[in-house]
Simulated assay, not measured.
Amino acid sequence: MTFTQKQLKEISEECVQKIMNAREGIEYFDEPFRHLVIDNFLEQELARVCLQSFPSLDEPGWEASNDSDIEIKYRTTWSSEFDIPEGIIDAVRILNCGPLIKAMGDRIGIPKLIPDPYFTGGGLNVTTKGGLLDVHVDGNYHDATSLNRRVNAILYLNQDWLPEYGGEFGLYDQNGDICLKKVLPIFNRLVVFDSNDFSFHGLPSPLSCPKGMSRKSIILYYYTKEPRPGHQIAVNEPHSALWKKRNMLDKRGNKVRNFT
């Protein structure tokens, strides 16, 4: 199905309202860090088209992470919107449109958010049976723009996902030791959260879904010119993802990284 500009604008306006009207304790939460969980986020047909358009792992444009203790998954290597598959680009356009970004910033309390036209680290994610993502905090700096990472958005596209498959998005305490909440990655569920040096998250237990099934999502990141407030900073210099199982170092064993 092809959506017209008018239809996409109407869908985006509905999505904006879902974010702005997120109710405290139901769709919006302060603990363990600020986040939104909104079900049936996209219009159902658009969400269905996204899933149908999800490329196979046999197709080009994927990179695999296979660090057995911290990260086993696949993600796309988009460098611009022209890399995004037909059928998925409309959802990305909605998630990156001005009114929706403003609504996210207003509701989660981080104004003046900016999307990433480079899709650095963003795009499609797939975790297959046995895959995992250790507890971590995300990188804080965008090399191409010198902007500061502030918000992550994840749209899940998993139909008929059962709790026994695992793969819940885990939110942890500020030390990354205790999982305080788990969010099942069900179809058309949007998760938005405040990304900082204490917003530990992950899915550290290997996925136990049936063979041939996988955990699919669209992940986008948002930035600000303004730095994170001091109470959200543990590492002042630019850093990559820092992993609990690596004693809060990145994949290369560093606390900070070179940047331009």
Rank of each mutant, 00 (worst) to 15 (best):
D250Q: 07
Q174L: 11
L51D: 06
G121W: 11
F119Q: 08
G98H: 14
F169N: 00
N96M: 08
T128G: 02
Y141F: 11
G122V: 00
E45C: 05
D134A: 12
M213L: 13
Q174C: 04
R75D: 09
I178R: 14
L57G: 13
I70M: 05
Y221N: 10
K216L: 13
I219H: 06
T120V: 10
S208W: 00
N66C: 14
D134T: 03
L133V: 09
D39H: 12
T77Y: 08
H142Y: 01
G131C: 02
R252V: 02
L36T: 01
L36Q: 03
P85R: 09
P115R: 03
Q17V: 10
E164L: 06
F54A: 10
P55Q: 05
D173P: 07
D250A: 03
P115Q: 04
I89Y: 02
D250C: 07
N196A: 10
P111K: 11
G170N: 08
I233A: 10
M213K: 14
I218Y: 03
A241W: 03
I84F: 03
D177N: 15
S65N: 13
R246T: 06
P210E: 07
Q52R: 14
E14P: 01
K216F: 07
P99A: 13
E164S: 12
L95C: 08
L162A: 13
S12M: 05
G166Q: 01
L46K: 11
Q232G: 00
T76P: 11
D83H: 08
S217T: 02
D83N: 14
L190T: 06
Y223L: 03
R93F: 02
E86F: 14
N140Y: 01
N188A: 12
K182L: 13
V92S: 00
L157Q: 04
D69A: 14
N66S: 13
I84W: 03
T4M: 09
I219M: 04
P99Q: 12
Y222T: 04
M213I: 14
E24C: 06
P111R: 10
E31P: 06
T224A: 13
R228S: 12
K73P: 00
C50G: 09
S195D: 10
N21E: 14
L132A: 00
Y141N: 01
P204Q: 10
Q5F: 07
